Simulated assay, not measured.
Amino acid sequence: MFKQFIGWKFVLASIAVLIIVTTIWFVSNLSRNIQEEERKKVATWVEANRELLRSDSDVNINLAVDIVTNNTTIPLILTDEAGKILDSRNLDSMRITQNPNYLPEQLKAFKKQHPPFIMEVDARHKLYNYIYYGDSLILMQVRYYPYVQLLVVTLFIGIVLFALSSTNRATQNQVWVGLAKETAHQLGTPLSSMEAWLEILKENDANRLLVAELSKDVDRLKLITDRFSKIGSVPKLEEKDIVEQIENMTNYIRKRAPQKVQLTVHSKETELPAMFSPPLFDWVVENLLKNALDAMEGKGKIDLTIENHPTFITIDIADTGKGISKMNFEKVFKPGFSTKKRGWGLGLSLAKRIIEEYHRGRLYVKSSDINKGTTFRILLRK
């Protein structure tokens, strides 16, 4: 499903790029054509004005007047040789009245957009007027259209990706919850039978040592079942001493770790109350410690450092193992990602879910160096 989601993202991105490139090409050609047509219209307008100045024919004068008055879209400014503004057309008359700088500002902008047309007004004295023109509203709308379309396409793709991501996340959550609940249910039946057999074994004093060891294993299975049963439901957070909780879990792992592995808990606080779910929090710490043990391959050092801050508590779990490449800092928390031959790639994903969704904290790779070690950080907010 994850690969399928990535595939959909690629398809959507490709379609978006194709739409944008095609639109930009089409609009660029269209805007060039409109710009050329507007230049021709201005040239015709200038020629019509020339005709009005020199023609004695009523027919020519009427035609020229029609051409001059029919220009209602292209903004024009007429100046003399000294640059003094003589007249303007198709500009905002209200702004011309209210703002004395409006016409000079428009003239400055027109000079940057197009070269002027020169019109002779007095051949004897060689007097000329200059006609500056700007882009019409239609041309500007056409030019800005690709950017509007880009925004619309981006919003559309964003909404689609968000919907796909939400659907994918919801499906994953359903799988997680279903798997966890079913595992807890399946473990319940043999656990009940084992507890019954333990009661029978207790009747014989000769089985005292055997019963004690089996009871530990049964309690361990009950704890695992309890953890799985809590997935999918909002856990009850309790105020407990987090230093004691971590030391207890570290002692449990220490007894089962290779002799060449040293586990040490560092904390300036002998007691540090925090709100957390003990079974689920133990699961996270246990998972991180087991991953550290796997990374060290039987020898090395694991340091658990607890620090108290004004608004949060941090727990750093540092090992001297193989390390993680920076490109995999986020990938290690993805379901299915594992560097182990027998791993399912679910442990860190579940741990992150427990800390971030149930405890409103953070779990991330603080630092890592290949063949030197990795430090995971748990951040719990007070």
Score class of each variant (00 low, 15 high):
K260L: 01
K236S: 07
E199D: 10
T305H: 13
S57R: 11
I131A: 00
I20G: 00
M249E: 13
K40Q: 13
E199C: 00
R89V: 00
V11Y: 12
I253H: 07
M140T: 12
L223E: 11
Q262T: 03
T320K: 15
I77N: 09
G336H: 12
V152I: 14
G323I: 10
A206H: 14
K334R: 09
R50M: 02
K331F: 01
I19M: 08
I354M: 04
E356C: 02
S349M: 12
E357V: 00
I15K: 10
F276M: 15
I302P: 05
E37M: 02
L223N: 14
G343C: 04
D316W: 06
T23N: 06
D92S: 02
S368P: 03
M296C: 10
S57V: 05
M327V: 02
S165M: 09
R377C: 00
I15G: 04
K366F: 06
D87W: 08
V243R: 05
A109H: 15
L280E: 03
W25C: 00
L127E: 13
F376E: 11
T72Y: 10
Q174V: 11
L137A: 03
N101C: 04
S367Y: 06
K3G: 04
L30N: 07
L263Y: 10
H125R: 12
V284D: 03
T270W: 11
I118T: 15
E297H: 15
F276T: 13
A64W: 08
T22F: 04
R256Q: 14
S55C: 00
T44D: 13
L137W: 14
A295P: 09
W176I: 00
V265A: 04
N29S: 10
S215K: 11
I306T: 05
G373M: 09
I313L: 06
A163G: 09
W197Q: 10
Q186Y: 04
I138S: 09
K9D: 03
L137Y: 13
F2A: 03
N287S: 13
Y144D: 12
L380M: 05
P335G: 12
I370Y: 12
I6Y: 11
V177L: 04
